[in-house]
């Protein structure tokens, strides 16, 4: 009866139809009763399933773990947000206060405002030059409105 049951389990096993319980039962049965091919196979499976690291291995692991009982480093989510906000703020400040390259026109205007009298003289000479070359004057784009503004300022001051 046992042998019949065993051979049926072997057939089911090779057909991939046995349950894990049946396979356990098969490995626990008298494997010497099986024919050579099956005997070799199931004995190998049985021996492999018994391979163990032993109790000492577990003790060594526990000793290592207890020795390395350092607290787990966790990243505080609040801290992450704070750091992200600080970085964003720094970047914003950097870009906000970046000196913007001034155009030559703006530099000229700034010079006008810093030393209006000198600028007036320079501009006056420039205009005389421009008038001397009237045919080219149309192409020159001078800030005349600013010039007039500065001229008025100088007059007012005098």
């Amino acid at each position: 009866m046992e042998a019949k049951n065993q051979s049926e389990l072997v057939k089911k096993y090779w057909a991939g139809e046995s349950t894990e319980e049946e396979e356990k039962h098969l490995l626990g049965s008298d494997l010497d009763a099986l024919e050579e091919t099956n005997q070799a196979h199931f004995q190998q499976l049985k021996k492999f399933s018994q391979m163990s690291l032993g109790a000492d291995f577990g003790k060594e692991i526990m000793a290592k773990i207890e020795h390395d009982n350092t607290p787990v480093r966790r990243l505080n989510p609040n801290l992450i947000w704070k750091v992200a906000a600080a970085v964003l703020l720094c970047l914003s400040m950097y870009f906000l206060y970046q000196p913007i390259e001034q155009s030559s026109e703006e530099v000229q205007l700034a010079a006008l405002e810093e030393d209006p009298e000198k600028a007036f003289e320079i501009t006056k000479q420039a205009l005389l030059l421009v008038s001397a070359k009237l045919n080219k004057a149309a192409k020159v784009d001078l800030p005349l409105d600013k010039f007039e503004e500065v001229q008025t300022k100088i007059k007012d001051r005098n």
Partner: peptide
Amino acid sequence: EFQKDILPLQDKLYR
């Protein structure tokens, strides 16, 4: 807890 839940897996993991 490690000893109770994880360590017993040692032979399975070994195989």
